[in-house]
C-alpha cells in the first residue's frame, strides 16, 4: 500500500525555538495512526507543522508529494486539519460551516454545484449532523460542534485527515461512534492521523502510533509495539499500576 504520510527529519519551529525535533515517520494509506505523548510533548505542534501552520524544516510528504511544494489550495484539497477547538464564534448555520470545507474546490465566483452540495450532505450524514443543518453553530453543544467540524474536514475530500484530539469533547457513545466513522473512512481509502490522550483508545482504535516526549520521537510503529512499558514509563513518567496493567490486558484479550 502507498504511504499517505511520510515525515523525514521533520522539525517544527515556533519563532526560532525548535518545538519538534527530527521526526521520521511513515503512515500507510487507509490506516488510523495515533500521535501520543504527555502534555506538552509537541503532538499538536507536529500536526500544525505538517499542515503548514508553523514553519517546518525537513520534509513532509502526502501521497508522495512534498507539502511545502503544494499551493495553498492544493494542500487544502489533500490535507484536512481539525483543531482542538474551533475559533468560530459566529452564529453561522451548520450547513454553511460544513460547506466551508469546499472552499479550495470552488472558483472565486462559483457557488455550490449540485455535486458539491451532495458532498456536503454526505459529510453531514457521515458524522450524524444532518439534522442540525440549519442550527447556528454557536448554539450547539461541545460534542455537536466537534462533529460539525469533522464534517467540514470530511467535506474537503482530503485523503489525509489530521485530527487534534477529536474525541476530547465527546461522550462515550459519540466517541465510539466517531471511531466507527473514521474506521469506515479508512476503508474508503482515507488516512486518519489523530492526536489522542487516552492510551486505551489508541490501543483499541489505531493501527499505528508515534510517541513524542519533549518534542522528540520516543518510539513509533504498530501501536502495540510502540507503546511498551518502557516507553510509557519514560514518556509519561508512570510505572504501570496493577490497575492499568489489568486494563491493558483486558484490551489485549478484547482484540
Amino acid at each position: 500500500m502507498a504511504d499517505a504520510l511520510t515525515l523525514r527529519n521533520l522539525r517544527v519551529l515556533r519563532g526560532s525555538h525548535v518545538c519538534v525535533h527530527d521526526v521520521s515517520w511513515t503512515v500507510e494509506a487507509g490506516t488510523v495512526a495515533a500521535v501520543l505523548g504527555p502534555n506538552g510533548a509537541g503532538k499538536s505542534t507536529l500536526l500544525r507543522g505538517i499542515v503548514g501552520l508553523l514553519p517546518a524544516q525537513g520534509s513532509a510528504q502526502v501521497l508522495g508529494r512534498d507539502v511545502a511544494t503544494m499551493s495553498r489550495r492544493e494542500r487544502a484539497r489533500r490535507v484536512a486539519w481539525l483543531p482542538q477547538e474551533s475559533a468560530l464564534r459566529t452564529a453561522m448555520p451548520v450547513r454553511d460551516v460544513v460547506a466551508a470545507g469546499l472552499f479550495a474546490r470552488r472558483s472565486a465566483l462559483g457557488g455550490l454545484t449540485e455535486n458539491d452540495a451532495g458532498g456536503v450532505d454526505e459529510a453531514m450524514r457521515a458524522v450524524d449532523v444532518a439534522s442540525l443543518s440549519t442550527r447556528p453553530f454557536t448554539q450547539l453543544s461541545g460534542g455537536e460542534r466537534r462533529r460539525v467540524l469533522l464534517a467540514r474536514a470530511l467535506a474537503t475530500g482530503a485523503e489525509l485527515l489530521l485530527l487534534d484530539e477529536p474525541t476530547a469533547a465527546l461522550d462515550l457513545a459519540h466517541a465510539l461512534r466517531f471511531f466507527d466513522t473514521i474506521r469506515e473512512l479508512t476503508r474508503l481509502g482515507r488516512t486518519v492521523v489523530c492526536v489522542l490522550h487516552d492510551l486505551n483508545d489508541a490501543l483499541r482504535f489505531s493501527d499505528l502510533a508515534i510517541v513524542l516526549h519533549h518534542g522528540r520521537q520516543v518510539s513509533s510503529g504498530r501501536t502495540r509495539d510502540a507503546l511498551t512499558d518502557d516507553v510509557i514509563r519514560s514518556a509519561w513518567g508512570v510505572s504501570q499500576s496493577p490497575d492499568a496493567a489489568a486494563r491493558f490486558d483486558l484490551l489485549e484479550s478484547a482484540r
Binding site: R72, A76, A80, P83, A87, L88, A100, F103
Partner: peptide, 20 residues
C-alpha cells in the same frame, strides 16, 4: 465573500481550508 465566510473560523482554520 467566500474567503470572508471562511475567515470567520479564524486565521488557522481558514488557512488550512485554502484561504490566503
Amino acid at each position: 465573500a467566500p474567503s470572508l465566510d471562511v475567515l470567520l473560523s479564524g486565521d488557522d482554520e481558514a488557512s488550512t481550508l485554502g484561504v490566503d
